[in-house]
C-alpha cells in the first residue's frame, strides 16, 4: 500500500521533469541553453523513473522471493548509472563541437572561451 504510493510519486516526479525538459528544448534560444534543459531535467527525471522500477522490483522480491525481481532492480540501477555518465559526456561533446564550429551563445553577457579559442 505504502509501496504503491511511493512508486506512483516517483513516477509522477520523473514524468513532470521529463516534460519540462521537452518544453525547455522548445523555449530556449540557442544550443547551449537547450542542452541545459535536455541534459539536466531528463537525467533527473529518468533517475526517478528508475527509482520507481527499483522500488517496484524490491517490494515484489521481498513479497515473493522470486529472483527475477532482483535482476530487474540491479539492471535498472546499472542502466541509470550508464545514462548519467553518457548524458553528461555527450552534452559536453556537443557543446564543445558547437562552440568550435562557430555557434556563439545567444544573449551572452560574457564569453571567456572566445578570448582564448576564437
Amino acid at each position: 500500500m505504502v509501496v504503491d504510493l511511493i512508486f506512483l510519486i516517483f513516477l509522477a516526479i520523473g514524468l513532470i521533469f521529463n516534460t519540462l525538459g521537452v518544453i525547455g528544448i522548445l523555449r530556449f534560444p540557442d544550443v547551449f541553453t537547450r542542452l541545459h534543459a535536455e541534459t539536466k531535467t531528463t537525467t533527473f527525471g529518468t533517475i526517478f523513473l528508475g527509482l520507481a522500477v527499483v522500488v517496484y522490483g524490491a517490494s515484489h522480491f521481498f513479497g515473493t522471493g522470486d529472483g527475477q525481481y532482483i535482476v530487474l532492480s540491479v539492471h535498472t540501477i546499472i542502466a541509470v548509472i550508464a545514462l548519467a555518465f553518457t548524458n553528461a559526456t555527450g552534452a559536453h561533446a556537443i557543446a564543445r563541437a558547437a562552440h568550435r564550429s562557430g555557434q556563439k551563445p545567444a544573449e551572452a553577457v560574457v564569453d571567456r572561451l572566445a578570448e582564448v579559442n576564437p
Binding site: 518544453i23 523555449r27 551563445p105 544573449e107 551572452a108 571567456r112
Partner: peptide, 15 residues
Amino acid sequence: VAYRVITGRIRPGIV
C-alpha cells in the same frame, strides 16, 4: 532549470 524553463528568465554566458 524548471523555474527558468517556465519563466524564460535567463542571463547566459561562458566563464
